[in-house]
């Protein structure tokens, strides 16, 4: 990461220009060549600095109106093995281990599920519950009711 990469991130974090040669447009803003922009983006993709280049849909707008953050209190000795398995379920879009915040928050495994209805999310959560079995002590589903903000990363200049 150098100053040019930073300038490139700054120029693209709000989105790619919607014009036939978007990388040339970015190049003009950053003050490097179109070829350099493409080479640097390819390098950042290879390093994982960029996860992918693409679009993020508003999941409500495309029919996935129910979004449930399922949370589980899983035995610490088993959570990594089971977490990999939960993450491997086709319908789970994000799956992480996170710290508990006792006593208010006993859950250490988070798995996001989506559906056209809450019933559909609940069926998916039930499948996770079966997989976790007796290793899970307690669980909950937090449904989202509104997107309050969705801008993604914003770095300063």
């Amino acid at each position: 990461m150098d100053e040019i990469d930073r300038a490139l991130i700054f120029a693209t974090q709000g989105g790619l220009p919607l014009e036939p040669r978007p990388y040339a447009a970015i190049a003009e803003r950053v003050g490097i060549s179109e070829q350099d922009v493409m080479a640097r983006l390819q390098a950042m993709l290879a390093d994982g600095v960029i996860r992918r280049i693409g679009a993020v849909p508003n999941h409500y707008a495309i029919g996935w109106t129910a979004n449930g953050m399922t949370v589980w209190d899983v035995d610490d000795a088993l959570v990594d093995t089971l977490g990999e398995q939960v993450g491997g379920l086709a319908f789970v879009t994000h799956c992480y281990r996170r710290p508990r915040a006792l006593p208010a928050w006993p859950y250490n495994l988070f798995a996001m599920v989506h559906g056209a209805s809450r019933e559909e999310c609940a069926v998916k959560a039930e499948e996770i519950r079966r997989l976790l079995g007796t290793a899970c002590r307690t669980s909950d589903i937090l449904y989202s009711t509104k997107i309050l903000k969705k801008t993604g990363l914003r770095i300063g200049r």
Binding site: M1, T12, Q13, M44, D47, I50, R51, V56, A61, L153
Partner: peptide, 20 residues
């Protein structure tokens, strides 16, 4: 699609962890 907010964004998805 972006104006109608069907797409919330379009561009590179940066992984801030990989940048420190």
């Amino acid at each position: 699609l972006l104006e109608r907010k069907v797409l919330t964004r379009f561009g590179p998805m940066y992984q801030v962890e990989r940048m420190g």
